[in-house]
């Protein structure tokens, strides 16, 4: 038996919880190890002191006070009712936490509602305005822009038709106006 094992078994030795073999090993170690022997003596003294602590007694009016408490509890309304309205807890929450919880939930709901954008029914039917065709078809108004060729017009018209189909199918999503850029890339080719 080493010191660790010995110190681990001090209480078991005092409380007679060890087997005969373990008792022999413990005794042998204690007689050879001053440190463990000192600790054993110290623990033995503590156990004796704890056992001899003065025994306390309740006050004289203990039973009277207890009786009053019992009468108070007995005079309360039915158990279920009292549990909900008279107890410290309100359906599993302490009142202050329940109030905080409800406030937080209401705040989240209000925030969520205010963040959702309002949708009018017209949004679904109105086509997204596409200035491309007018812009290119009227060279007088748009002097800085060169006239559109027939091929380009056909392409733009078909693109517009395509856009109107897309607009009908996905009315909320607005396509970014990249037409000028796309056309220029194609022109370069």
């Amino acid at each position: 038996m080493n010191c660790y094992e010995c110190q681990d078994k001090i209480s078991a030795y005092i409380d007679k919880q060890l087997s005969l073999t373990q008792i022999k090993e413990f005794d042998e170690h204690i007689s050879n190890c001053s440190q463990c022997s000192e600790m054993y003596e110290g623990v033995l003294t503590i156990v004796g002191a704890l056992n001899k602590l003065p025994k306390l007694t309740v006050s004289e009016n203990f039973n009277g006070n207890l009786k009053r408490k019992i009468e108070t509890v007995s005079s309360r309304p039915t158990r279920r009712f009292s549990k909900v309205f008279y107890g410290r807890h309100l359906w599993g929450f302490e009142p202050k936490y329940a109030f905080a919880f409800v406030t937080a939930v209401v705040a989240i709901v209000v925030l969520a509602v205010s963040l959702i954008p309002e949708k009018s029914p017209q949004t679904f039917t109105q086509p997204i305005p596409n200035p491309t065709i007018n812009q290119f078809s009227d060279p007088v108004k748009n002097k800085n822009i060169r006239p559109v060729t027939t091929g380009e017009k056909e392409m733009l018209v078909s693109e517009q038709e395509e856009d109107s189909i897309l607009t009908r199918e996905k009315p909320i999503r607005q396509k970014p106006d990249l037409k000028g850029k796309i056309r220029l890339v194609k022109d370069k080719k």
Partner: peptide, 15 residues
């Protein structure tokens, strides 16, 4: 058993 032993040792050291 372990808790009692450790508690007693701690008490002994403190006292």
């Amino acid at each position: 058993k372990s808790r009692i032993n450790r508690a007693r040792i701690q008490l002994q050291q403190e006292l």
